[in-house]
Design a protein around this nucleic acid. Structure first.
Length: 268
DNA sequence: GCCGGAGACCGTCAAGAGAA
DNA sequence: TTCTCTTGACGGTCTCCGGC
């Protein structure tokens, strides 16, 4: 999706992504979530007081400088050689030639095999030219699991040894077609319910109407999902714009100071 | 309060792509 | 070839806001 920069420096968000990279932590990075094809990485850095943690967002471009954007000001927890602008709402950590010692960029082999060597040239070209669907983007972003769930409450065990059980409750599950599934922390998603086998009629007109109803219901839900993904995608792009603008600003500032330094040395 | 424009959201249709 | 999924396009509804 990103990583295609034209001669003007503009990034084409619809351009295909390079193979994703994973960030392994060295020291300060305690948690990371790889957002693969957009190459946006969410990191959680320990704040200086050991209480709060600081969310940062990074855009990793394999052949370019990396940018780390922070949602809030962070303390300079990284080693020497890094440029950290903590006075601005969106800080930038520049890593020219790997000067960001806290992070290592490593190639992954497991998360994406779409660039394997035995791919046909045609398929490769398709991958390079075709715009990925929002679903693919969202899957790359780490979400997007779709499940068909029977009516009733579901418990999910996410911790080791059965700790941390979450309960999903389904509302309006008695209505035909679908139910809202509510997650414990207020998140909701919509699950179409499969037609019960006893209710399916074999009559011509009625069957047609039922089929149409099902199609409309599915499409309605698909459209809703598509819009949601599109919004998320646009948000992602906006974040990226902000990150790149900050990077641009930082580079301009750096250039300015280097120029001044050069002029000073020249006059001496 | 009323009206009109803007923006957000929704449902539906249609076309294209990919899977079966 | 058929089916399903995804998404752009279109029109409708609702809400908010500024002007009158």
């Amino acid at each position: 999706m990103d990583g295609m920069v034209d001669e003007n420096g503009t990034v084409d968000p619809l351009a295909p992504s390079p193979p994703p990279v994973a960030i392994s932590s060295v020291g300060v990075v305690t948690q990371q979530q790889l957002v693969a094809s957009t190459n946006i990485v969410h990191l959680t850095l320990p704040a200086s007081n050991n209480h709060a943690q600081t969310q940062v967002q990074s855009v990793i471009q394999p052949n370019q400088q990396s940018v780390i954007q922070t949602a809030a000001n962070i303390q300079p927890v990284l080693g020497k050689g890094n440029v950290i602008l903590v006075s601005k709402p969106n800080s930038v950590i520049q890593t020219p030639q790997g000067s960001l010692h806290a992070l290592q960029v490593v190639e992954t082999t497991a998360s994406d095999d779409s660039y394997s060597d035995d791919e046909s040239p045609k398929k490769r070209r398709d991958l390079l030219t075709r715009r990925p669907s929002y679903r693919k983007i969202l899957n790359d972003l780490g979400g997007g699991e779709i499940a068909v769930i029977p009516a009733g409450a579901i418990q999910i065990s996410s911790g080791e040894g059965g700790q941390s059980i979450h309960t999903l409750s389904m509302t309006n599950s008695g209505t035909a077609g679908a139910a809202i599934v509510q997650y414990a922390q207020g998140q909701e998603f919509f699950v179409p319910v499969m037609a019960q086998s006893g209710n399916i009629t074999s009559g011509g007109g009625e069957d047609q109407a039922r089929k149409r109803e099902m199609r409309l219901l599915k499409n309605r839900e698909a459209a809703r999902e598509c819009r949601r993904k599109k919004k998320e995608y646009i948000k992602c792009l906006e974040n990226r714009v902000a990150v790149l603008e900050n990077q641009n600003k930082a580079l301009i500032d750096e250039l300015k100071s280097l120029k001044e330094l050069y002029c000073k040395q020249k006059t001496e």
